[in-house]
């Protein structure tokens, strides 16, 4: 397989991760995801500028501003990660560069958790110290009006983008099995929820409830911390070669079971035990099989590898090992299949 000269490198060819060519659906999803992330970056930069212009001395707006800056991290992590993951394996990187996704996921998770924790701290101390947020008036184009209205308008703008973009990214993250994209969708959820919370909070301050802003922020920060922690936990476990999980980390990936099912379905195999880890987009499979009777032929082994690989485009690197007895060092995946 040659490196440089690859027709797919020019223009709109099929996408790929390392030497795994993406099927047309995933190729299209990848192109769309890249475009969405660029749109996200551009949008967030305008949001950052707008919030900076309207924040005045409001602490809540300042927090929203810092969050918007942190929201740049997941899209950047995604773009860097998919760019790296495209590279073919090299002598120094025989497994390819897929793990860049895991690093991107970890980075995005840390950014998300930081947003949540900073919000908790900010809202918490505001409530404990009983800070009364001052919001005065703004003089703009010859009109004087309460600055709260301007903040609400800014929050409507910064909230709408993430609300739409986040929803568009979720299905793509499933299609591509891309956890950076998934964490980014969580970040966008955090963004629009914070914006909505700030709107409620500023309106509350408007009617004289000084604690409204901090209370709204505290409620929302709980869900952000939860999302950040979940992403951080699963990003770290994935780096520790946890069994592959679904794009949203909710369940062990069904493919981890299907590998053994398909192998055990072959006539010459009496039993099998496999390890499936998530390299980032694609999976790495090590399967140990116990043949019935004599040693299997090369043809039989290749047929088994093909059977596993044809399960899914993600089945990228399959190592098959015929053994006399299944290794008892590998736990039965069905033992803990939640």
């Amino acid at each position: 397989m040659s490196r440089g000269a690859d027709p797919a490198e020019a223009g709109h060819g099929t996408g790929r991760f390392g030497h795994t060519e993406l099927p047309p659906r995933q190729s299209a999803a990848l192109r769309k995801a890249k475009r969405l992330e660029v749109v996200t970056l551009v949008f967030m930069v305008t949001a950052i500028a707008l919030v900076y212009a309207t924040m005045g001395s409001s602490q809540a707006m300042k927090t929203a501003w810092i969050e918007d800056m942190l929201a740049l991290v997941p899209p950047l992590a995604f773009l860097v990660a998919v760019h790296r993951a495209r590279r073919r394996p090299s002598a120094d990187h025989p497994y390819g560069f897929h793990r860049s996704t895991a690093i991107g996921h970890l980075t995005a998770a840390v950014a998300l958790l930081t947003v949540g924790l900073s919000l908790v701290y900010d809202a918490g101390t505001g409530l404990v110290r009983a800070e009364h947020p001052p919001i005065g008036t703004t003089h703009l184009l010859g009109v004087t009006f309460w600055s709260g209205w301007l903040m609400i308008a800014a929050m409507v703008y910064t909230g709408v983008g993430p609300f739409i973009l986040g929803r568009m990214k979720l299905p793509l993250s499933e299609e591509l099995h891309d956890k950076v994209l998934f964490a980014d969708a969580d970040m966008q959820k955090a963004d629009w929820m914070t914006a909505a919370g700030t709107i409620v909070g500023v309106l509350g301050i408007g009617i004289g409830l000084w604690w409204a802003d901090a209370a709204a922020a505290l409620l929302i920060s709980m869900s952000i911390v939860h999302d950040g922690w979940r992403n951080l936990r699963h990003a770290s476990s994935a780096l520790m070669d946890e069994r592959a999980r679904t794009f949203d980390d909710k369940h062990p990936h069904p493919l981890t079971r299907e590998v053994d099912e398909v192998l055990q379905g072959l006539a010459w195999i009496s039993d099998s035990r496999s390890r499936v880890r998530d390299q980032g987009h694609v999976f790495h499979v090590e399967a140990f099989v116990r043949p019935i009777g004599d040693a299997p032929t090369i043809d039989q082994l290749e047929e088994a590898v093909d059977a596993v690989r044809s399960l899914d485009w993600k089945m990228h690197d399959v190592v098959l090992m015929p053994v006399r007895d299944l290794p008892d060092t590998i736990p039965d995946p069905r033992a803990n299949d939640q």
Binding site: E131, H132, P133, P134, I135, G136, T137, H139, T144, W146, G148, I205, G206, G208, W210
Partner: peptide
């Protein structure tokens, strides 16, 4: 003005304008 007394602050700012 006292922190967060936004009606007073807004009234004063308008008047000072």
């Amino acid at each position: 003005v006292p922190m967060g007394e936004n009606a007073l602050q807004s009234e004063l700012e308008r008047w000072l304008d």
